[in-house]
Computed example of a mutant assay.
Amino acid sequence: MFKGSIVALITPMQPSGEVDYASLQRLVQFHVENGTDAIVSVGTTGESATLPVTEHVEVVKKTVQFTDGAIPVIAGTGANSTQEAIDLGNEMQDLGVSGLLSVVPYYNKPQQRGMIAHFNAIADATSVPVILYNVPSRTVADIDNDAVAELSHHKQIIGIKDATGDLSRLADLKTKVADDFLLFSGDDLSGCEFLCNGGHGVISVTSNIAPALMSQMCKAAASGDFATAREINEKLVELHTTLFIEPNPVIPKWALYKMGLAQYPTLRLPMVEPESTSQATIEKLLQAMGILA
């Protein structure tokens, strides 16, 4: 069900801070038309940290409606409260999502046994496939490979998004997890090599801006044409880096605004628009790539 280029979609907003559903529909169509394999709705890039539950659910609901079954939607449902994550997952599974992306609990700094218990409880409570999400640069907590291996045998836990960028973890994970467990990169810069070394897909920020190239790169790697995958990725390396010169999703939102796909570059406080130097940097790159005139 899940493979290839999966976009970690932004949540477009109006200057008032309200969600811009017209732009969201435009973005979803952009991905359907450009070969994106699935959408993660309201994950980190979708500003999940600042969307209250009712709004979070509504954005996912609208995203499912806008795809109209063309590609799967994975709902971001993580929380550092196990019960909150369960409750959110239960709401999402009734919306027609194809999966849940559940982040390692942040701030609490749970032990490995605590993380195992947390994810087992979430998986026990849902009928929708669960993908683990490890991003220690944001959560501080870091689930280790042995814990992931144990969780990989739960029938509802089908994969992990690994945003560490550490390819040695991938090599080790492949020897430990269940045979059908899916391995996704959450780090665009190392995503191509992740695929070439046995990964199944990339949950990508870059795909917000260059979905067709990301799709082509992922398809080439999946077919075993690693030379072509690396050649395509070379065209994306500077974009992978530039999108993170300020905290995500500050630069992706500005880029999509300049591309005319998001009506406004608005972010939820405490995030604000990029510095003028950053604006100039991304705009110059998009022009060099032929994305902007």
Rank of each mutant, 00 (worst) to 15 (best):
S23Q: 09
R268C: 10
Q263F: 08
T281S: 13
A288M: 04
S48Y: 12
G43H: 11
Y107N: 00
L9H: 11
L243F: 01
E193T: 12
V59K: 07
V19A: 01
A255H: 01
E91C: 12
I282S: 06
L173Y: 04
T67S: 05
F226I: 03
N80S: 14
P129F: 00
V202C: 07
I251H: 06
E234A: 15
K219G: 09
T175G: 09
G165W: 07
S137L: 10
V250P: 02
G89N: 05
A280Q: 14
N248G: 08
L236D: 05
G69M: 00
S41C: 10
V32R: 03
D124Y: 00
T82Q: 09
A288Q: 15
L183N: 01
T45L: 04
E84S: 13
T206P: 05
G191E: 06
L269K: 13
D172A: 14
P52T: 12
R26Q: 11
N90H: 10
T45A: 06
R26I: 00
S98F: 06
T77Q: 09
P105Q: 04
G224C: 02
T164S: 15
G4P: 00
D187R: 02
L173T: 02
T266Q: 07
Q65M: 08
A117F: 01
G159H: 03
M115W: 04
G17R: 00
L182Q: 14
T67L: 07
E193R: 13
D179Q: 11
S102V: 15
N197E: 13
A38M: 09
L292Y: 12
Y106Q: 05
L51P: 15
S137G: 13
V177N: 02
A75I: 09
V140P: 03
V59I: 11
Q279N: 12
G159K: 03
I74C: 07
P270C: 02
V32G: 01
L267P: 12
L167G: 14
L151D: 05
L189Y: 14
F2A: 12
N233Y: 13
Y21H: 10
G35I: 02
